[in-house]
Amino acid sequence: MLEVNGIYKNFGDLQVLKGVHLNVEKGEVVSIIGVSGSGKSTLLRCMNLLEEPTFGEVWMEGRLMTPVDPYLHEDVIRASNTFKKLVADGMNDTDAIHKIKDEDLLKEKRKGAEGAEYAALMQKIYDENHIDINLGRQKMGMVFQNFNLFNNKTVKENITLAPVKIGKQRLKAAKKRGEKTVKTPADIEAEANARAMQLLERIGLQDKADVYPSTLSGGQRQRVAIIRALAMDPDVMLFDEPTSALDPEMVGEVLDLIKDLVRSGMTSVIVTHEMGFAKEVSDRVIFMHDGVIAEEGTPDQVFNHTKNPRCKEFLSKVLY
């Protein structure tokens, strides 16, 4: 459902991600663990393109959110002038493809320099699969370590802002296309308000609807941030260390809400330091080290039977 493919991420000279493949299935709960700096948060942020991957592709529900990465498509490589030249010079196909991939022979050239066939194929793949980045993000809810509630909006406005803005945008677009629209902008607002109140009730904060986030506790803020993401009815939730910035006594209430969500079948990717929690809720645990996935498997496999020395070392430190 959510697939990242061959993701590299460089910050200047620093390589943070070095080729990560990950496919999250519908309904699956994936926890990502690892030491700070191992690239786990960056990987999560690449999934909804808050960080633009340097190379690689992100696919959401079969639609491409990033530009096409030629190295991930053998037919594209075969269409390139570089490949044709290597083969003409006597190299066999497989070696030529490897050489192009290993030596990054396509990246340095401008689009047109690899020939019309190459450019047309790139364009074709893009046109057939591409989805607008904002549409893609609307299917993914993101929860941040620092909550990032909108300081200039009330709790309720925080929740309704995106549904209302995007609902109205869709309405406008539909009208432009000449479609008949049943809903009015007022309907959209009313619906968003009702949904916000319903969500607030679910977390017991309905009486905080009209206050500003600065008056809430950390735990309350994070719970509001979670339902803000839910208000967009996402297909997958991305949690970026959701409890790291919380006082210990507030961790529980946030984890309980996430557990609740996960049990109701929400597809989730959770970057976390809470090992007990990861063990309890995950279908799959991923251990990242130095920009790559070093170990992955069921919680039992990773926490109890890992062979990876890095993973062992990490777990021995965090699990006492």
Partner: peptide, 23 residues
């Protein structure tokens, strides 16, 4: 302004323009 504010708005699928103006 905390860059997290922009990130949160973008993560909900709002455009750069809308996020800038409303948040």
């Amino acid at each position: 302004v905390d860059p997290g504010q922009m990130e949160a708005a973008r993560s909900l699928g709002l455009t750069q323009h809308t996020a800038m103006l409303s948040i």
